[in-house]
Design a protein around this nucleic acid. Structure first.
Lengths: 173, 173
DNA sequence: TATTGTTATACTCTATAACTATA
DNA sequence: TATAGTTATAGAGTATAACAATA
């Protein structure tokens, strides 16, 4: 494999390896298990938050797998449900989604008959977004499953810690 | 544009619009500003965490823009720096990165002469990862900039809240 | 001119599968 | 047979730019 590397890798990389051939060429089992230190990463909020978010999204997707709804789809339906008649721009801005991306998200939700784009009477450029009857029923189920997911979060980090977290991050809503 | 929709949209979507033509067809300026409620989303840790992470990554990227280092690249270099000789598998597992993706990350770091793949003497399949001399110097600078980014986080959510957050999420390290 | 929805492109990230060399 | 690194592909997600219809 070292041979394959020499032939297939980029010239700069190979040159770097040649330049330092006397460097320690093995780890000699120095890191057999899980004793690998994170060094500066343990002091970075971003690192912990990234790992937490990966866990949380995976659990959300798993918990709502039976209804095939992902976090972003859920957030879009929830906001439309609570604010019927919003334009696509308004939803995109509120949730921090690109309006170009919202187009595809709404396409899939409309195909499943959860959401409908209704022509706005006041501005012929825009759509008024509404949940369909089916969408309203479905959202109710999604919310129950999402609440179950939220209980998983509470089990993982602790009920009180979850509350504290929500308070700390409230400024990002 | 409503016309364009009717011709270009999928049949299901159009059918849905036709099926409910008497629904409220305008929001009549009902959500002029930023009074759009999040409903159930405010109770979901995942939503706040996602928004927080977007903010934190953007600030990290901005703060380290001068050295052109992104969060994942920084985490890889930090772990290699603290544990020289690690294999690619070990780094991937420790950081929760796909090993397939780590290949490209290391390619770019090797091209910039920050990291070198040294053939392992004990297992000819694997590489022992090390920072180059240039990489060590560079990482020192990256850490100073990352610390500056961390101060931005403290300013944003408060020094004490940042500490609490790190404690709450310590189990994800 | 500016904005809304749309289309298209590119790049990052995640998730897989398959392949080669090696264990 | 199993594992390490690599390659390739597909799908989300992010970031842009450009366009038609409309304001």
């Amino acid at each position: 494999m070292a041979i394959r590397q020499k032939t297939s890798r980029k010239a700069a990389a190979t040159a770097a390896a040649i330049r330092r051939p006397r460097a320690r060429a093995t780890n000699g089992g120095a890191h057999a298990g899980d004793d690998i230190g994170l060094d500066a990463l343990v002091g970075h909020a971003g690192y912990a938050v990234r790992r937490f978010q990966l866990w949380i999204f995976q659990d959300f997707i798993r918990t709502l797998a039976t209804v095939d709804i992902r976090p972003t789809q859920y957030s879009v339906m929830t906001v439309i449900g609570a604010n019927p008649g919003l334009s696509q721009m308004a939803v995109a801005k509120r949730l921090g989604i690109e309006r170009a991306r919202l187009v595809h998200l709404l396409d899939s939700l409309e195909e499943r008959d959860f959401v409908s784009r209704i022509p706005s009477a006041t501005d012929r450029r825009s759509h008024a977004l509404h949940l369909t009857a089916r969408g309203k029923t479905a959202l109710g189920q999604f919310k129950r499953l999402a609440a179950e997911h939220e209980r998983h979060v509470a089990e993982k980090i602790g009920k009180d810690n979850r509350e504290r977290l929500l308070q700390i991050l409230a400024c990002f809503n």
